[in-house]
Design a protein around this nucleic acid. Structure first.
Lengths: 197, 197
DNA sequence: GTCTATACGCCGATAGAC
DNA sequence: GTCTATCGGCGTATAGAC
């Protein structure tokens, strides 16, 4: 049996910090969250463990953003591999986003509600990020295959994700209406219908 | 001839501060803007004129938010008065929002891109604000009159403004595509079509 | 790898002369 | 109503002992 370690592994503590930071950023925003808050959240006595792993507070947010986008990217690759038709791919992507909204709202708050460019000026916007560029390739394929109408690419993105993101934002801000699953299918239908041939 | 005043009027300086703050908030965000920045923007030597008119920095943002919403509210009343059909009212509201996007992008950035609740936790979200509650009354009337489909009220809002806001956000972030007027009419058509009977 | 202690800067806000 | 001067506080980040 492995002896219980008091001092945590590097990767372990790093993840712990990222999770804590994500939670706080999503709750209060980046600027309203201090390193002291993060320190309290992980139950440390000082901010040393944090500043050791990450040079600056910005680095935490930056790594967080990358981890989230990378995971999204992997999921989208998986979805593309498993589904042939564009409509099925998009449907699964929407399902994924709503699942995240319910199971990990912090992630969706970070992506949709926080203005990431305000504290990470170097980073690309969501629209220009790898996973969402990939999704725009899917739109393109859909236009070619005749599943999607021949609209301006920017408009396709805006119509589809405008609706999806607005509904998710509502849920994140706590609309007191129907069940989430109802909004999910309504959102999907409206978003798809707005671009489908 | 009136003698040139060195000391500015109260309301005059107040407006000047609000305009300066709006510009900087929209550019860099609330937290990246210091009172010193605002002071420089209005060409004062110290922050005294600012802290005299507004007790705190938050107050500036708060008054700004109210002024913007009040003006929007007035415009919407005017639009409702001048147009009978719901479709015409909504069309004019969309025109107004796009006009603001071109002529006063700071205002739209403040409303759509900044996360207002992060620095004004007491204030209502855009969705719950007076002018947008009023617009939801218009949606309601449209459903009654048969111009709009019988959808969930939240979904009507999300479909219509999801598309409109997403397009405006794209423009504010500088999409390098078609002319704005093209996006404007495309956005209107898509948004209206998504809720029209 | 975590602690104590501390430095440093910046910003918001105030007091009082002019 | 604007200036000079200054205070207090917070938050980031660092240095060095354990």
């Amino acid at each position: 049996m492995e002896k219980e370690k008091e001092k945590k592994q590097l990767t372990e503590i790093k993840d712990e910090i990222l999770v804590a930071a994500l939670k706080l950023f999503a709750e209060k925003g980046y600027f309203n969250t201090s390193l002291t808050d993060i320190k309290d959240q992980i139950g440390a006595k000082t901010t040393s463990p944090i500043t050791r792993q990450f040079k600056t507070k910005q680095t935490i947010a930056s790594e967080l953003y990358h981890v989230i986008l990378d995971n999204l990217n992997i999921s989208i690759d998986d979805i593309r591999r498993r589904n042939k038709k564009v409509v099925d791919q998009l449907r699964e992507i929407v399902d994924l986003l709503f699942t995240l909204t319910v199971d990990a709202p912090e992630i969706m708050r970070f992506l949709l509600i926080l203005n990431v460019t305000e504290f990470l000026p170097e980073e690309k916007s969501l629209y220009e990020s790898k996973p969402f560029q990939k999704i725009q390739k899917i739109f393109e394929a859909g236009v070619k295959s005749g599943e999607i109408r021949e609209l301006d690419p920017v408009m396709i993105y805006c119509q589809f994700f405008g609706i999806i993101f607005q509904v998710i934002t509502m849920i994140l801000n706590g609309v007191n209406g129907k069940k989430i699953s109802v909004y999910q299918s309504s959102a999907w239908m409206a978003a798809w219908k707005s671009i489908a041939k």
